[in-house]
């Protein structure tokens, strides 16, 4: 049976007014952002690019274009530091991504709303807790004379905070909360019906994660991983305050080169090292973006 209902209506709706998009108005709105980016990112990047390929004659003060700075940045201690930074960032980002995902999943599936809010609030604070205060906190607790080191006798077991793994542990302190903040909204977006549909089709819990949840989460996980890598790669103050030069890192080498801590006249090598960092970041993004595009296609 079909039915029709007569609806009393008021005056006829006003004729639709065509909406014209004023491109000029759009550009005006975005102009402040573009100006800010140009000043804060573009100008330093150009200066860095120019300096990396420039050499200054100490006698005459004349400048000339050269690739020597760039070549020097990829040799010896500088290369070791660059690779050390990549390794530290990759390891700490990988561990933080796994632990952050597990913690976020526990929070998302928890019945206790207070626990969820507490963890997310704490993550918001801890993700921004870095630099010298973080280094001091770790030195005080897990350094050679740290409270926990002495009480638990960690030194007898070979514990050394001022090492690669010590620095990794310190970085995890802010990287794990950062991952929790990044991935929690994505986990919230996993629909319970996907799990049930998978179960209904004979999938175990592990099969659901392998064949459904992780592929669906892939864009967020990849995004989180890149964010963590970048955060660890660019970190300076924590490492500088904690390990000095005992763990070779590119950010520490840049600081040394600019300040003339080891050799004088290495400022342009520092700029070349900075360019190396940009290249590494671009490389990571070059791997990430196609993967992200591929996995995001079915989430449109």
């Amino acid at each position: 049976m079909t039915s029709s209902t007569t609806t009393l209506t008021g005056p006829a709706a006003a004729a639709a007014v065509p909406v014209r998009r004023h491109r000029s108005a759009g550009w005006i709105a975005v102009a402040p952002l573009l100006a800010f980016v140009a000043l804060s990112f573009g100008a330093p990047a150009l200066a860095m690019l120019g300096g990396a390929f420039t050499a200054r004659d100490p006698a005459t003060g004349a400048t000339s274009y050269t690739t020597a700075n760039f070549a020097a940045s990829l040799h010896g201690a500088y290369l070791t530091a660059l690779l050390g930074s990549v390794k530290l960032s990759a390891v700490s980002a990988g561990i933080a991504a796994v632990l952050g995902l597990l913690l976020a999943q526990a929070v998302v599936t928890s019945r206790f709303r207070a626990l969820r809010e507490a963890v997310l609030t704490a993550s918001g604070v801890l993700a921004n807790f870095g630099g010298v205060p973080l280094a001091f906190a770790f030195v005080a607790t897990l350094g050679n004379s740290g409270v926990l080191t002495r009480q638990l006798g960690l030194a007898r077991h070979g514990w050394d905070l001022y090492s690669f793994w010590g620095l990794t542990l310190t970085y995890l302190y802010f990287l794990i909360p950062l991952m929790v903040l990044t991935v929690t909204p994505a986990l919230d977006g996993l629909r319970s019906q996907w799990r049930e549909a998978a179960q209904n089709n004979g999938a175990t819990g592990a099969q659901y994660w392998r064949h459904v949840a992780l592929p669906v989460l892939a864009p967020s996980l990849l995004g989180g991983l890149v964010l963590l890598f970048g955060s660890a790669f660019a970190a300076y103050a924590t490492a500088a305050a904690m390990v000095g030069s005992s763990v070779p890192l590119v950010t520490l080498q840049i600081a040394d080169a600019i300040s003339g801590n080891v050799l004088l006249g290495q400022e342009n090598v520092a700029l070349a090292l900075s360019l190396d960092m940009v290249a590494v970041a671009c490389l990571v993004m070059a791997v990430y973006l196609p993967l992200q595009r591929r996995s995001a296609r079915w989430l449109d």
């Binding site: 629909r191 019906q193 996907w194 049930e196 549909a197 998978a198 179960q199 209904n200 089709n201 004979g202 999938a203 175990t204 459904v212 592929p215 669906v216 892939a218 996995s295 079915w298 989430l299």
Partner: peptide, 21 residues
């Protein structure tokens, strides 16, 4: 019997297709 071993096929209210497949 756990859900993944039940011999039932289910169609859900909202579209529950896996979006990546």
């Amino acid at each position: 019997v756990p859900a993944h071993r039940r011999d039932t096929g289910m169609v859900f209210q909202s579209y529950s297709l896996f979006p990546h497949l």
